[in-house]
Structure formats: C-alpha cells, structure tokens
C-alpha cells in the first residue's frame, strides 16, 4: 500500500484494474494461476491479461483450447487438489458450454463430500450488452449462477471494485464468479496500487437520498447514478445502492435504506422474468413490508434475447431515462 500512498489520485480504466487485480493475486499466491482462452500469448481479447505471461511465465498463465467444459473442469480439479486457479470464461454466455462443471461439480462438491473438499476457484467472466454483439455474446446470466447453493457471484460496477473483488474472490475458500461488464472496460477512476480487498457480500450506498431506494447491479449502477441528477431536477432524492454481490446478497443494507425511504426500485440488465430483481423484491416484502409505502418496482430488460441492431439494443438495455420513468411511477407522480 506504500506505493498507493506515493501516488494519490492515480486513475485507471476498469480493464487495467482487472489486470492489476490478477497481477496482485499471482504475485501474492504461489498456488494461483490463470487459465482460459487467449489469456497468455494474446493477453485476453479484452486486454486484461496483457503482460501476465511475461511476468509469470507459461506455468501460471495458461492458454487453453476452446473447451469450456475442460477449462471449468480444470478449475474444479485443480482447486480441489490444492491450487487456487483463476479461470477466465471469455463471455458469460459460454456458461452453457460448461454448466455441468459449474452447477453439478464446482458448486456442489464440498457439500456432496460432507465438507471435506475445498474449492478456492475464481471464475472471471464478461457479461452485458451494448456492443451489438447480439444474442450469444451479450447476456446477463447472474441469476443462473446465484441460484446455485455453494456458488458466490459478484458484479463489480467500477474499476476500484473490480480489482478489489478479484483479490477478495481469490482469497475466498469457495467458488466465486466475478461477473465483469464489457461496456465498462474503458471507465476510468482512481484505483490504488498494491493489494486491497473489497468484501464479498456487502452492498455499498453510492448516493444518499430520502425518497426512494434504487438497488442496482453491475453497470446499471452508473445508469442509476445518472438518474439521480435527473430526479433531483424534479425534487426527488434517490438513494442508490450498488448491490456489488448477488450471492450472498446484502439484504440488510437494502432494508436499512428502505426503512428510511419507504420505496424501492431494483435495476438490472438481465431480463426481468426470473431475474434477480424478483428475488430482491420478494426479500424486501418479506423483511420490510411494514415500511413500504409503494410496491417494489423493477427496471430490467424485456423478455427477449439481446438484439443485434443498435437501434433495438439501445432501447433494450435499461438506462437513466427508463429508471426515471419507473421512479415516477413508483412515486405515483
């Protein structure tokens, strides 16, 4: 942390914060390695593995075939036997290729073995729409993963959290999915040098407000924050909570906020039906029904695959305007 103190205010894009997170882990943990498609020679298609091969060598930065079952199995087998792998799953959409290794092996092995196996494996994957990558390279499938007992799922919304959560995930003794967002890769902010943790399972209040609580996931946090300015213009003070972690979910922070605001809106990029917003809404009504002055509302993608055309994709993804509209509805304005 001394380096961090030496260079206050150093700004870094999300993509390079990921790179630094992985780099810190490989420096700190001798049993850690990263394996995935195009991570070594190419430095990952997103560029976040740039320079890792040169610093850590072929044994610890491992190019794999395009074999997601094999890659995820590598993570299961290596973590159960004493390594701390970082597995890179290039697009979140590819979980379909390795869902058995994720759902039936990785998430359940410890339980099935009566607690006698430990799987400290971190999976980095890239979710989200916005680049006209169409229906198979743009999805937000975090609800699929969060539905699995044994799995942890986090969605860092900014560069600081991306680095810190990657470090925390690799120090955790459970399988952790770190769901990154491809539309955030160039977003820049102050990121400390050196190693630091962002705790898994703790939400973060991004803006204080008294009229309504907005619980947002991943990149939607930025849309929610953008909506706050617009809401101010019409006299509404919204409190934005960055959920940060989907599983475990920090219900307490959300409920405490609602005790103050009495209204809640959940925002995510995944489709609304079966999305994590349904679960959060249910938890709010179970835990804070008496504090609510209005039904819990949701802003999410419509029930459709992600479209290709920019004209359609633009209206598909929730944004500050759609959040503002739903806030008005919630407040019956």
């Amino acid at each position: 942390m001394s380096e961090a103190e030496n260079k206050p205010g150093r700004e870094l894009p999300y993509v390079m914060a990921i790179n630094e997170g992985i780099r810190e882990v490989l420096r700190e943990q001798k049993d850690a390695f990263i394996a995935g498609e195009d991570v070594a020679i190419a430095g990952s298609v997103y560029g976040y593995c740039t320079g890792l091969l040169e610093e850590f060598g072929e044994d610890r930065v491992v190019d794999t075939p395009i074999s997601e079952k094999g890659i995820m199995g590598l993570g299961v087998g290596a973590s159960a036997t004493g390594c701390r792998p970082i597995i890179d799953l290039m697009f979140m959409d590819f979980v379909g290729e390795c869902m058995d290794e994720i759902a039936n092996q990785m998430a359940k092995m410890r339980f099935m073995f009566g607690g006698k196996a430990t799987l400290p494996v971190t999976v980095l994957t890239m979710g989200g729409a916005g680049g006209s990558l169409a229906a198979q390279h743009s999805q937000s499938l975090e609800a699929w993963l969060a539905h699995l007992p044994g799995m942890k799922v986090v969605m860092p919304s900014d560069a600081y959290d991306a680095k810190g959560m990657i470090i925390s995930a690799t120090r955790d003794n459970n399988p952790v999915f770190v769901v990154l967002n491809k539309a955030s890769l160039a977003m820049t902010m102050e990121v400390p040098e050196g190693s630091y943790e962002v705790p898994l399972g703790e939400a973060c209040v991004r803006t204080q407000g008294k009229d309504l609580t907005i619980v947002a996931f991943g990149r939607m946090v930025h849309e929610a924050i953008a909506s706050v300015e617009k809401l101010k213009e019409i006299g509404i003070e919204a409190e934005v909570i960055d959920a940060r972690s989907v599983q475990p979910f920090d219900t307490e922070t959300v409920v405490n906020s609602i005790k103050k605001t009495h209204r809640a809106l959940v925002v995510h990029e995944a489709v609304k039906f079966g999305g994590i917003g349904g679960e959060i809404s249910a938890q709010i009504q179970e835990e804070a029904f008496d504090y609510l002055d209005a039904p819990v509302m949701r802003v999410a993608a419509p029930f459709s695959p992600v479209p290709f055309s920019p004209a359609l994709e633009q209206i598909y993804i929730p944004n500050a305007d759609s959040i503002v509209a739903k806030v008005k509805e919630t407040l019956a304005l």
């Binding site: 079952k69 087998g77 159960a80 196996a117």
Partner: peptide, 27 residues
C-alpha cells in the same frame, strides 16, 4: 468420496469425472 484417500468422488453425471481428473493432474 474420500479426499484423504485421493478419491475425488463418484459422480452422478456421466462424463463428470474426466475434466476433474485432468484438473487434478494439472495440479
């Protein structure tokens, strides 16, 4: 299963074991 004996589990999924064995060999 028995980790102390080096036995990484029977498996309810046909074909579930080989990727795990490969990962253990990588280890």
């Amino acid at each position: 299963s028995n980790m102390d004996l080096g036995m990484l589990g029977a498996n309810g999924i046909v074909g579930g074991g080989p990727p795990i064995a490969m990962g253990a060999a990588f280890s």
